[in-house]
């Protein structure tokens, strides 16, 4: 439920970002831009005036692009925060649990709504077992998540998988709680530039 509300918020944000993208040619107010003509005027030639205008246009375009990029990064960070929920697994298992599937349908909804999003799915294991086998287990987990999302309708070329094995635990320690927290797959969202 929470996720749904967050999704609405994100969608609104993304719309704003996309709108910002649309009104590209609106003048951008910025002190550095204002000063630019003053320095070029000293040359007092028609040529340099044209060049100054060109420079000004480029500058404002650059600033607009910068602002868009900042907006994109902000949305990306926000999306990543919302998508910070993780999919958990049972010991030595890569099958998705019921709650994992529930979460993944929400992730799938977000991805279907926003075609600009691509994701990296990272699979992790707990500290038990060898480095080597846990690398394969992590890759199986990330692949299971990807397969679920593909079945949900998300194009597979928007998803990349990576295994961290037992190398990147979320919680240190040898307790069952720590192990359970570390048997996971998580997402990194990238918004296409």
């Amino acid at each position: 439920m929470m996720k749904k509300m967050q999704l609405v918020l994100v969608t609104a944000l993304v719309t704003v970002a996309l709108l910002a993208c649309a009104k590209k040619d609106e003048p951008v107010v910025n002190p550095t831009v204002k000063e630019a003509p003053a320095t070029t005027k000293n040359m007092s030639s028609a040529d340099s005036a044209a060049a100054a205008a060109e420079r000004e246009r480029l500058e404002s375009e650059r600033l607009a692009a910068e602002r868009l990029e900042a907006e994109r990064a902000k949305v990306e960070a926000m999306i990543n925060k919302i998508m910070s929920d993780e999919v958990y697994f049972d010991f030595d298992r890569s099958e998705l649990t019921a709650s994992a599937k529930e979460l993944l349908t929400q992730v799938g909804d977000i991805l279907l709504k926003e075609p600009r999003f691509t994701i990296t799915v990272a699979g992790h294991t707990d500290a038990r077992g060898t480095e080597d086998y846990n690398m394969t287990l992590g890759s199986k987990r990330s692949e299971k998540v990807k397969a679920f999302l593909v079945a949900y309708g998300v194009s597979s070329n928007r998803m990349e998988t990576v295994s961290y094995g037992k190398e990147n635990p979320k919680v240190e320690g040898q307790s069952e709680e720590a192990f359970a927290q570390n048997r996971r797959a998580n997402f990194k969202v990238n918004i296409k530039k």
Binding site: D132, M135, T136, S139, K140, S142, E143, K144, T161
Partner: peptide
């Protein structure tokens, strides 16, 4: 070495 292709090593 082990190489991962489509989630399988």
């Amino acid at each position: 070495y082990a190489g991962i292709v489509d989630g399988k090593s």
